[in-house]
Simulated assay, not measured.
Amino acid sequence: MDIATIIGIVAAFGLMLMAILQGGGLGMFIDVPSMLIVFGGTIGVALINYPLADILGAVKVAKKTFLYQETSTNDLITQLIEFANKARKEGILSLQALIDSVDDQFLVKALQMAVDGQEPEDLKTMLNTEIEYIQDRHSKGAEIFLSLGTISPAMGMVGTLIGLVQMLQNMSDPSSIGPAMAVALLTTFYGAVIANILCNPMAGKLKTRSKSELLQKTIIVEGMGSILSGENPRIMEQKLHAFVAPSERESSFN
Rank of each mutant, 00 (worst) to 15 (best):
T125C: 06
M126D: 15
A184H: 03
P201K: 00
L148E: 06
T5K: 01
G204H: 11
N74T: 08
N200W: 02
I81W: 00
G230V: 02
Q22W: 10
P153K: 01
S229K: 11
L215A: 14
M113S: 12
L107H: 08
A12M: 13
M171K: 05
L161N: 07
M224T: 05
L228G: 02
E213R: 04
E250M: 10
F106G: 00
Q105P: 09
H138V: 07
I99S: 06
F66A: 10
I134V: 07
M126G: 11
A195E: 07
L98G: 04
L214I: 12
L127S: 11
L146R: 11
E121H: 01
Y133I: 04
A203T: 12
C199M: 08
M171A: 02
G159C: 01
P51E: 13
L123V: 06
A53M: 11
Y190G: 08
I55D: 01
T129Y: 00
S247A: 13
P120V: 01
K239W: 11
L168G: 05
S210T: 03
I43S: 05
V102Y: 10
E231P: 05
C199I: 10
F145L: 15
D54T: 12
L123M: 10
V38W: 00
F13D: 12
E213W: 09
V10D: 04
I43H: 08
L185S: 05
